[in-house]
Amino acid sequence: MSLLTVSGLTKRFGGVVANRDISFTVRPGELVGVIGPNGAGKSTLFDVITGFARPDSGTVHVDGHDVTRLRPDQICRLGVARTFQKLRPFHGMTTLENVMIGAFGRTNDVNAARRAAWEALERVGLGDRADAHARGLSTGQRKRLELARALATGPRLLLLDEVTGGVDPGAIPGLIALVRELHARGLALVVIEHNMGVIMDIAQRVVALQLGEVIADAPPADIMRDQRVIDAYLGEAWRV
């Protein structure tokens, strides 16, 4: 059975159709990439799946539960965590405290949450910055912080909105390695990414969006040959 099932999802903002009749699935442990030009509806899709926006029609199921009308915190508790394209750490709190908030979804005990947060920070390689304030971190470190905060909730599915966007090029390989490692440990991931080299490398399957619609859903090798994807997004340089 699939872990995430999106079927017939449509989301309008006034006259603009941000998502039109979108359907796709994610199996447990799968790594799915989402690509598409700016304004294709990628982040809106994440917002609808995680309960931050209500769809006009269509449904979202997580592990058989209908989550279409649930709040973000309820969806998170069902095992779906996300990061934001525009990073949103809790600025006035330390790195450790940021991650503790994620851990509180699983425990009410402060010490247990602190331990879980430490583990998550070690996992993303931020253990040495535990006491730093979030506002003092670099962009790459903040991406790791958001990852740790999401991981601390104990997700089965992680939605990552632009892992490498805005990050110093030197920090990109480390982040990619981290995503690979999470995937290797059995976590299912949906990754929005503009860096085609990265997405074609790590994804098992790629969903391409254009103007709110799915124009292709296939393994990376096939996506690169898909004429509609090339026209809409990749450009001729990617033709194999």
Binding site: A81, R88, M93, G105
Partner: peptide
Amino acid sequence: RRGYVFRAIREDQDAAASVGV
């Protein structure tokens, strides 16, 4: 727990909701 969660809501309530608050 509440003290931490309250501060998280003060900093960014959407981010807090996204991690289960």
